[in-house]
């Protein structure tokens, strides 16, 4: 098991009676792209703000590089680059001046500014005021700010939010290349499943403040085994019959679902008919990630 870069224990944030984040235990390993997935308002941003010390947890702790954000924020933040929600910038300044602020605080080398501008492809606009930038350019500048000074962990909150398809593609490629190119670990949040599917190696699914799944994308996919879906009458008796055969059956609505595994659908059909059930529908269905997601979140759509 590789080294944990981010680890939270029982991380909780309450606003009055409302629990925005409820006892989250995140684990982000070194070198991975961790996709933090959940519907809007699920608690992603609040969690990220707690990781960065912008919001104080009501309970629990966040450890980054093994250090507590409560006790050693300065040591941690030196090594973490972040985008929190929409890209943040000082509009009255140019791209270079914005980066200069970051550079001075970090005490990084002057050459860093050109290096990160090169990475995000903004070199030719570096002396333009940022308020005149397009959203995509602002987003790229935000990534450049986060990369400046060889940071080891990037925390990117909705990095492709509001971009056009070309921009999304570009930022996605950039993020995907970061661990290989610069050896950084990335924690990115998104409310778009395909986004995480295309970029991340690990996934955490959050809904209504609770972390409902955490694991690799592979582990999430493995949940998507094929099922046999049957409509048979009378349903309750059919259910009992199938269970008596040692099968695990789930009833959803007026249909029964059985994990396919090595089961033969034709044989199953024959057995039901021979037993005198009316089989009006039989199909094999493969759940996609969207279905899995809905199942995990109990129907909270993205």
């Amino acid at each position: 098991m590789s080294e944990l870069v981010v680890e939270t224990q029982d991380l909780t944030k309450k606003y009055g009676n409302f629990t925005a984040v409820d006892g989250i235990d995140l684990q982000v390993r070194k070198g991975e792209i961790y996709g933090f997935l959940g519907p809007n308002g699920a608690g992603k941003s609040t969690t990220i703000r707690m990781l960065l010390g912008l919001v104080k947890p009501t309970r629990g702790d966040a450890r980054i590089f093994g250090l507590s954000i409560r006790q050693s924020p300065m040591e941690i933040l030196k090594r973490v680059g972040a985008i929190v929600e929409s890209p943040s910038y000082y509009g009255n300044l140019t791209a270079v001046e914005n980066l200069e602020i970051t550079r001075r605080i970090l005490g990084a080398d002057k050459k860093e500014i050109d290096r990160v501008l090169e990475i995000v492809n903004l070199s030719q606009w570096k002396n333009k005021k940022v308020k005149n930038f397009s959203l995509g350019m602002k987003q790229r500048l935000a990534i450049a700010q986060a990369l400046l000074g060889n940071r080891e962990l990037l925390i990117l909150d909705e990095p492709t939010n509001g971009l056009d398809p070309a921009g999304i593609h570009e930022i996605r490629q950039l993020i995907k290349n970061l661990p290989g190119m610069l050896g950084v670990t990335v924690l990115m949040s998104s409310h778009i499943l395909s986004e995480v599917e295309l970029t991340a190696t690990s996934v955490g699914i959050i809904s209504r403040g609770r972390l409902l799944f955490q694991g690799t994308l592979e582990e999430l996919r493995r949940k998507s085994e094929t099922e046999i879906c049957i409509e048979a009458h009378p349903q309750d008796k059919a259910l009992k019959f199938l269970e008596s055969k040692g099968l695990k059956v789930k009833a959803r609505g007026n249909r029964l679902f059985i994990k396919k595994n090595s089961l033969d659908a034709a044989a199953l059909n024959r057995a039901l008919v021979m037993e005198g059930f009316d089989v009006t529908h039989l199909s094999t269905e493969r759940k996609n990630l969207e279905d899995i997601f809905l199942e995990i979140t109990g129907g909270d759509a993205l």
């Binding site: 943040s88 000082y90 308020k131």
Partner: peptide, 18 residues
Amino acid sequence: RIEYKSGGLRYFLTLPVK
């Protein structure tokens, strides 16, 4: 205003500043 107009403060405070 400079800090709030376009999220400057929330970015700036993620830098290692007290």
